[in-house]
Design a protein around this nucleic acid. Structure first.
Lengths: 207, 207
DNA sequence: CCTTGTGAACGCATTCACAGCA
DNA sequence: TGCTGTGAATGCGTTCACAAGG
């Protein structure tokens, strides 16, 4: 169990967690690193090494208790609480995000939404009141928001993210297709289908 | 210029391309590896090394011609053609994808859409005719589709992807939040906001 | 036989540092 | 002076291989 855990290790934990949830729903009680590795297309050694950063969760000869490891990973990833999120930008994409049913079961809740279009402010979408973006800072603090989702046009994204950071937000999920700059200490994850596609065409183009 | 290029290098090229497009739009004609690195928060050495896998594009004392490097990267990534895509699953998410305006300008075109809901089959959404998923294989070949986008419920995703692969598809952009298994030789990219969020909560939970 | 956990070995990606050139 | 391109060095992540336990 080391002090500083490599980012690449952390980035794999959510996929482990998801695989374990599936195993649980299949009624499987124990899984070996080899079995998990086969499902995830990874080497057993990597899984064991990754987990060893956080403790000893397995039993020789048996493998890992699915429910135990699931619980441990949830706790390690900080998923044993509900995270409050705010959405900025309630256009077409923003509405799809508000509608998305996949967040809540994983403990992510959208509790606020912001727009600058006066026609939308004051309305409710998917049960969330749309507020004026001018009230961003106060409202974020009132509602104890942890994470912001940015779904504004690319041209506005940097300004919006700067505002969010100034308001004390420490994690941003950005849907705008731009290279954003963020101060150290703030986590930023991009969701960008075009980048994903461009990463595949390289290989498609050469057979 | 090596034969086998590391995946991690390829994965960075799209971000370089995007930064160059921005520089171009700003009217900047030359950029050094240091200047580009400052924008992307990367070391100049990494950028130079990455590019050196593909050729010599810079000029000593000046840096890189923005438009030249942009063109070269487009070509390297296979983006000097239009890629034909098919969407499977025209639910809420699928419709948002059909509506998305970001694909076309980058050379990605959705030319077909498939559903199993009879109420949708035969209708047009965002100019694309929705076909019966039973006609997947023939239609994909007729329309010379290169890439498939999967936006079906998680429970159907593996079956759909197997069908796509059997139909000869070599690249899949998957929006379903599951661990998919794909045969070697097929590229798979996942778009999964929950995984992205879970990767951030680890750090949020420890200050 | 089956497992895990782990130090050591390995291999690959990043960074350094400098020759070569404008 | 500025910069690129690149071999060499470094550092880090993955894999190996085995002791220990069931």
């Amino acid at each position: 169990m080391r002090r500083q855990i490599p980012e690449v290790v952390v980035s794999r934990l959510p996929t482990y967690l998801r695989a374990l949830a599936l195993l649980k729903s299949e009624g499987i009680e124990f899984i070996s690193s080899r079995g998990l590795g086969a499902r995830l297309r990874m080497t057993p050694a990597q899984i064991r090494k990754d987990l060893s950063f956080f403790g000893k969760f397995g039993r020789q000869g048996r493998g890992y208790s699915v429910s135990r490891l699931h619980r441990e990973l949830q706790q390690i990833l900080g998923l044993d609480k509900t995270w409050q999120m705010a959405l900025v930008g309630v256009g077409r994409l923003g509405r799809a995000i508000l509608d998305y049913k996949g967040f809540a079961p994983e403990g992510f809740k959208i509790v606020a939404a912001f727009e600058n279009d006066p026609n939308l402010i004051g309305k409710k979408v998917s049960g969330v009141l749309i507020e004026d973006i001018a009230k961003l800072e106060t409202s974020l603090k009132d509602k104890k928001v942890d994470i912001a989702i940015v779904a504004v046009p690319s041209s506005d994204a940097q300004v919006v993210i700067d505002k969010l950071v100034k308001s004390g937000i420490k994690a941003v999920l950005n849907y705008a297709p731009i290279c954003v700059r963020v101060s150290r200490g703030v986590r930023l994850q991009g969701i960008d289908p075009v980048l994903a596609l461009q990463g595949m065409t390289f290989y498609l183009a050469r057979g």
